[in-house]
Simulated assay, not measured.
Amino acid sequence: MHFQHANDLWQDFPHLVPGVISARGITRDASVDRAVAGFAATAAERLAGTPESSLPEVRAWRRAFASMGLKPTQYRCASESLLRRFRKEGVLPRIHPLIDLCNAASLAYGIPVGVFDMSRIEGNLEVRYADGDEAYETFSGEVERPAPREVVFADDSRRAHARRWTNRQSGHSAVRDTTSDVLIVVEALHDSAPADVAKLIGALADELRAGWGVAPVTAVLSATAPRFTY
């Protein structure tokens, strides 16, 4: 099975830098308190000097969303939504050690981080423009149909595991207590994305080794090397 972005998405967003991690053997009993606190402190320091909407990582996603006809203040990328909540409340809710870790890393780097339960993905996973007949399951269990040309994470069964690119992840493949094997996807569009994405997936891989004792597989993808096998 593999993960990739569609060719026309690369053509429309040539500055895209995706990073991917696969890890097997995740459990709910790991402790990530130290890592979460460190990432949160970095985020707080960044937000002390500038609002999240002015961060280059967020601004790049706002431009991308606007180019797709989405209002930036109505549909925010995942990292902007997390930063906005963190700035207002000073803390994020704890959900699952892996989600807590990835949310905190997303705060620190300002980059969206998606985490998918591999057992809930049918075959390959591709980030592409929707045809309009894909099925997307919300966290409440309702099924939606993404609009044609909306960017989705779609598997071979035509299930959408995320809507509006980095805006909304599906409840179907969200990490839960029984999750063991995961696919973590990091995507950025800003000028320093190549270096920042490499640092982010390196930091997450280190914490996966430390917290779970697993052996993550990582890659930074490009238009010339777009595929990650998991």
Rank of each mutant, 00 (worst) to 15 (best):
F116A: 07
S106L: 06
T73H: 08
D100K: 01
R145D: 01
I99D: 00
V113W: 01
L98R: 00
N103P: 11
S81I: 05
A104N: 06
V58I: 15
P112S: 06
R59P: 11
L101T: 03
K88N: 11
A43G: 11
A43E: 09
F39C: 00
I95Q: 00
P93F: 03
R85N: 07
W61C: 09
G132K: 05
I121M: 09
H96G: 03
R120K: 15
R46N: 12
E126Q: 13
L101D: 02
L82I: 02
A108G: 11
I111Q: 10
F39R: 02
R128W: 03
E142I: 01
P146H: 03
I95Y: 00
A104F: 04
K88A: 14
D117W: 04
E134V: 00
A130C: 10
R84P: 01
A40K: 12
R145P: 01
L125I: 10
S53P: 02
S140H: 09
R46D: 06
E122R: 15
P112A: 05
H96W: 03
S79I: 08
F116I: 10
Q74T: 06
Q74F: 04
R62S: 12
M68I: 02
E45I: 12
P97V: 07
A60Q: 00
A130H: 12
P146Q: 02
V58P: 13
G49Y: 11
A135T: 13
A44W: 08
G114F: 13
V91W: 08
L55P: 05
N124H: 10
H96L: 06
R85T: 15
Y129V: 00
V115W: 00
G90D: 08
R87Q: 12
R149C: 12
V58A: 14
R62N: 14
R94A: 12
T138D: 03
R85H: 09
G132F: 01
N103M: 09
G49L: 14
V58Q: 14
M68A: 04
R145T: 05
F139I: 08
P56F: 09
V113E: 02
G69S: 13
A147M: 15
E45N: 13
P51D: 09
D131V: 10
L70F: 15
D100L: 03
Q74V: 10
T50I: 12
R145F: 09
L98H: 00
G110P: 11
V113G: 03
P112Y: 10
V143I: 15
R84F: 03
L47D: 11
S79W: 07
V143F: 10
E142K: 06
A43Y: 06
R94E: 07
P146S: 00
R145A: 13
G132M: 01
S53F: 05
A48Q: 07
S53Q: 13
S67N: 08
A44V: 11
G141S: 00
E126V: 15
T138E: 07
S79D: 04
F39A: 03
A41T: 14
L83A: 14
S67M: 07
S119M: 11
R84C: 12
M118P: 01
E126F: 05
A40G: 14
P146K: 05
R120E: 15
K71P: 09
E142W: 02
L107G: 12
